[in-house]
Design a protein around this nucleic acid. Structure first.
Lengths: 264, 264
DNA sequence: CGGCCATTTGATAGTCATCAACTACCGTGG
DNA sequence: CCACGGTAGTTGATGACTATCAAATGGCCG
């Protein structure tokens, strides 16, 4: 067992050049191997603070984190969640300061990579490409979130998040066991989606009552992935025209009765 | 009159190296001067299309444009407006494809700069810094928008936009004459802010009726800039607790009665 | 002048925030 | 080990906010 990294290390941006990983020996030039320091975090710890100089980036080994952005006027909002393999504090456009805070959602471990190392690595085309791809991915994510918050109804937003979390989980742990652990609170989810925690709680209950998911506290299992997807995908957000008699398609309408409140 | 550029050319990212500008002779190395081709656009023309290869960037000389992002599932949303001096189609993270469409809001003029030229220019530290700053600015803008759409009430969002437009206008035309021309339709504004066009129209009317602005069609004048700012800045979105008797501050509450609907 | 589109305005109701209990969970300390 | 307190989460009642539907008005272009 040469690779002593956590399971998700193989997804880390730095994995190919990480001295702690066996693969590095083969692919990385001798001089560029990293021996990152490791840090342990407790739930709630700040990994990076918004506005502070960006001196270090922190690949997440285990645990999870949230990004929190505070607008110039003091509005605060969760802008994303991070799972092992993600890089906390990685700023796009070579920003000299962190654009958002990163906060551990649970006891977690991170590596600490100085930005100088990062800058040197960026000189290597292969690494550079990978790093830029990660940043683009993050940017795209934020845009999807913007559209979700700006145009979609609450059930769709939540369905989107659940599917996204499941997808990320699958990307890491291989097979999708469809069982997630929500490391974030309802309030965090609500902030991300532009809702209130009560609404999130209610929707989760409603999803569960219709058999889409099973949820108990922070343990969640996706039962009907396709159902969630149909809620998410539903353009026009489950709009309810007066439902004239003989309305074609009324007898179908898969699971997106979700958007219509409790079954009367 | 050596500088033949449009007034806003001096704000263009490429101005220091633009062969059409007199200043370029002084600051730019001989080999890197640009002679960008100019294009004329009609209202509604696509400058760049989302997903198409990013081969050219288009500094906006005159007119205005909107960015429209379409999510993977087909949700479409305006993500920003551009004014002269902005660069259309400029993709962050060296993205090979355009991440959003840019559409002229009125008859406009743009320059066409090949990405190869851009790439060469990025080698020069001064230009690189400026370009990265522009991209960071754009990213920050999007995040502010995300928070606005996610957490703020409709009147705040609109006040924010008006102040922003006024600020951008002032940054270009020097003194703020406080008179803007809204090149975008109500529907575009609504899409940007995550509202409907009716709500935007109503709010504009309401703002006007309270003396914050004067608006007739697409001609708008800001009368009480501070009043708009107080609406925008109001944390907790003008929440109305039951207003107990003797509630301190009730007799104040500047212009943010806006958030409470028509004066009863 | 007529048609078309953008905008305004009104009426209505859906969605979701807000306020308020209530319950479940978790770690702590007796 | 169990009682306890505090936090997180659930559920209900209510109504504000804003979407939706509908119609009228105004401006612009052919």
């Amino acid at each position: 067992m040469p690779d002593q990294g956590a399971p998700a290390c193989s997804l880390c941006l730095f994995h190919p050049v990480c001295g702690a990983a066996a693969t590095a020996a083969a692919t990385a030039p001798a001089g560029t191997r990293l021996r990152p320091e490791r840090l342990s975090l407790r739930a709630g710890d700040y990994v990076v603070r918004q506005g502070r100089p960006a001196l270090t980036v922190y690949p997440l080994r285990t645990g999870s984190a949230k990004q929190v952005y505070e607008s110039p006027l003091g509005w605060r909002q969760v802008t994303g969640f991070s799972l092992p393999g993600d890089v906390l504090g990685l700023e796009p456009h070579e920003a000299p300061q962190h654009g958002a805070a990163a906060i551990a959602l649970q006891d977690s471990e991170v590596c600490a990579v100085p930005v100088e190392s990062l800058r040197e690595l960026m000189a290597a085309p292969a690494f550079r490409i990978a790093a830029l791809a990660v940043m683009r991915r993050n940017a795209e994510r934020e845009r999807v979130l913007l559209v979700a918050v700006g145009s979609m109804k609450a059930p769709q937003r939540l369905a989107m998040l659940l599917l996204d979390l499941a997808g990320e989980q699958a990307r890491r742990h291989g097979r999708q066991d469809s069982t997630l652990t929500l490391a974030m609170s309802r309030a965090d989810i609500a902030s991300l989606l532009g809702l209130t925690l009560e609404t999130v709680s209610r929707l989760l209950s409603r999803f569960a009552s219709v058999g889409l998911i099973a949820v108990r506290q922070r343990r969640l299992r996706i039962i009907d992935s396709a159902g969630l997807a149909s809620i998410y995908a539903d353009l026009d957000g489950g709009a309810q025209r007066p439902a004239r008699e003989g309305d074609p398609g009324a007898e179908f309408a898969p699971a997106m009765a979700m958007c219509r409140g409790p079954a009367s």
